[in-house]
């Protein structure tokens, strides 16, 4: 079983690497290897690795595969620790700026159920727009100061916006725009690149060895990783954005983390959210 899993991991990485190599070599000749193909391979790998887990269950992270802590987590979800943040977020969302406008003026559908619009490639800005950056753009556009990027009010607002989006399916689009493709490819490369003194990639822990234990922690599968952010973590004693998590996982391998909303993390979020297409949006979430 362990052997099978390891081979699966190596094959998976090889496939993605080959796809990447081909796209570089043959770029002038044929169209770039498609994100659609990557997605098929990625999803297929996890469906095979965890055959008893239905696709939508991957929205629950480690609890989709960890029967031991599942029950405890379900009990926590009965009285979720992020509930106050949702209420606070709703209040902030509806509170007018000094100019009288509200967040609703910046978003499609008045900002209800639109967490699913993010991340997307913004052709005008020439970069990936995330929910967090969109919230802050809305503020600066209305003469307000941007919020801190990893915790606090930003997580309350995005928790509320995630909550009104629950039940929709992740369906991120990578348009036929070379710059969007490049952003996606850069995010993908980040995911498979070794880094830090400990020399590990994200994929080492969340693809190749997902389902194994590192010390006492079970490693969650990368599939569905973006479904439930912002997340309440008991370790944090509060909520954090996905970029806060990225930074934490970078630090674990003694790598220098990047800044929240840096282009590196935006591209990484773009790739990783796309890889979760087909899975329900179920934020905010609760984790250990």
């Amino acid at each position: 079983m362990a052997q099978h899993q390891k081979d699966g991991g190596a094959t998976m990485k090889k496939l993605l690497l080959i796809t990447a190599a081909i796209s570089v070599l043959s770029a002038p000749l044929v169209s770039q290897a498609s994100p659609e193909e990557d997605l098929k391979t990625f999803r297929g790998y996890f469906m095979e690795r965890f055959p008893s887990v239905p696709l939508e269950e991957f929205a629950n992270g480690v609890y989709a595969i960890d029967t031991a802590s599942r029950e405890q987590w379900e009990a926590i979800e009965e009285f979720p620790p992020y509930e106050i943040a949702i209420d606070e977020g709703e209040e902030l969302f509806n509170m007018p700026f000094k100019n009288g406008k509200t967040y609703a003026s910046c978003f499609r559908n008045g900002g209800i159920g639109v967490r699913s619009d993010y991340p997307y490639y913004d052709k005008d800005k020439g970069q990936v727009e995330t929910l967090v950056s969109a919230i802050n753009d809305c503020r600066t556009k209305n003469g307000e100061r941007p919020l801190k990027l990893k915790k606090g009010k930003i997580t309350a607002l995005s928790a509320y916006m995630a909550y009104t989006t629950r039940g929709q399916t992740i369906d991120i689009k990578i348009p036929h725009d070379q710059r969007a493709r490049d952003a996606y490819e850069t995010g993908k490369r980040f995911y498979y690149a070794r880094r830090g003194q400990l020399n590990m990639s994200c994929a080492h822990c969340h693809v190749d060895h997902s389902g194994s234990k590192i010390r006492a922690d079970l490693l969650s599968p990368a599939l569905g990783h973006l479904s439930h952010f912002p997340v309440y973590r008991s370790k944090w004693g509060g909520l954090g954005t996905i970029h806060r998590r990225f930074a934490g996982c970078n630090k674990q391998v003694r790598a220098l983390p990047f800044k929240a909303q840096s282009s590196q993390y935006r591209n990484l979020e773009y790739f990783l959210t796309y890889m979760s297409n087909g899975i329900p949006w179920n934020g905010p979430g609760a984790r250990k």
Partner: peptide, 10 residues
């Protein structure tokens, strides 16, 4: 492809 860190080299 190993995940094991290079304890001496690094």
């Amino acid at each position: 492809n190993t995940i094991m860190p290079p304890f001496g080299k690094h």
